[in-house]
């Protein structure tokens, strides 16, 4: 991955003159986290990193800008395979203009989920972390530990179908797979669906009771671009109250769900950012499962596709 990082730095330097800025990653709080970096000059390129901990979906940072500044500002964006699907979806919806984007594709072999490692050890007490021999090796105060990658990567990485970005201008070649044991797509949802509706109701009620309505899931979603004009914020009509109880939180999440039907690319950003660990991406991934089952449509794959709920066939039967 070090090699990928240095080649990435070279490529970013090359395009800096063309763009207003490039969105990439920099070191985070721990050796197991990375955070967004906005690069505007060659000096800032030094801070750029790329490793197995670069989880954030950077497509989020271009989701609205293009409508307004894209006209005269071109930006560079570093995309992993799954992030690129968000970009494709935004292009499809006319939110981004292709000519205003320079997409630098990076190879991904599965990203480590901070939420998952938090359950195993304290990331704040980690001095060093690396992925080697299909294991995550970390140096903790009490010594070195290693964990199976299957246990620490995001669920989405266990069935990844788009390790390579679909639309790119520059592709950095590198390792695309660690030969993780692949699981069936959305197996976690299929598992959850074994429950009876009444049990599921209780499951979600317990989850929504935790929700503090910080709106991080909405703001982190690359496809939630209404932002300041979100239905969840309106008082008239009164879709939901300000109370943070299961009843009102349910409605908030339903508003999001009904707006990403047939659009969610399953990047799991909503789940990654949730401060109270709600497995929230399951809701949105479920909507995509339904549209795949009913309309044989997978969001974020082709720019020229039409989202399934914006079209119809006269003679279709369900």
């Amino acid at each position: 991955m070090k090699e990928v990082e240095s080649r990435l730095k070279e490529e970013v330097k090359k395009i800096l003159d063309e763009v207003a800025y490039v969105v990439g990653y920099q070191e985070g709080l721990t050796p197991l986290s990375a955070r967004p970096l906005f690069i505007r000059n060659p000096k800032e390129v030094d801070r750029l990193v790329y490793n197995d901990f670069c989880a954030p979906n950077l497509a989020n940072y271009v989701k609205k800008s293009d409508q307004k500044i894209g006209i005269d500002q071109k930006v560079g964006l570093i995309v992993k395979g799954c992030d690129c699907r968000s970009v494709v979806q935004l292009l499809q919806e006319g939110i981004l203009k292709r000519e205003n984007l320079i997409l630098i594709g990076v190879p991904c072999r599965g990203m480590i989920s901070f939420k998952k490692i938090e359950k195993l050890f304290d990331p704040l007490e980690t001095y060093l972390a690396e992925v080697r021999d299909k294991k995550l090796k970390v140096h903790l105060a009490q010594g070195e530990e290693s964990y199976h990658l299957e246990d620490v990567v995001f669920e989405k990485c266990l069935w990844c179908e788009t390790r390579e970005p679909l639309v790119v201008d520059i592709m950095i070649q590198g390792p695309l797979s660690l030969e993780l044991e692949q699981k069936e797509k959305d197996f976690d949802i299929v598992e959850l669906e074994q429950k009876e509706p009444a049990e599921l109701f209780d499951f979600w009620t317990a989850q929504f009771e935790k929700c503090i309505r910080c709106y991080a899931c909405r703001n982190a979603c690359p496809l939630c671009y209404c932002q300041d004009n979100c239905l969840a914020d309106t008082r008239q009509p009164h879709w939901l109250g300000q109370q943070t109880d299961a009843l009102n939180n349910f409605m908030y999440h339903m508003i999001r769900a009904m707006h990403v039907v047939g659009r969610c690319t399953g990047c799991q950003e909503c789940e990654r950012v949730c401060p109270v660990d709600i497995p929230i991406s399951k809701i949105f991934r479920k909507t995509s499962m339904i549209t795949q089952q009913l309309f044989d449509y997978i969001p974020g794959m082709k720019v020229e596709d039409v989202p399934p709920l914006l079209t119809f066939k006269k003679d279709e039967k369900f």
Partner: peptide
């Protein structure tokens, strides 16, 4: 109603997941 048909069909599939008997 063509659009409605698609939307409502999706909703019908979605409800049980949120715990509402379809």
């Amino acid at each position: 109603n063509y659009y409605a048909r698609r939307r409502l069909e999706v909703l019908g599939h979605f409800l049980p997941f949120m715990g509402i008997d379809p």
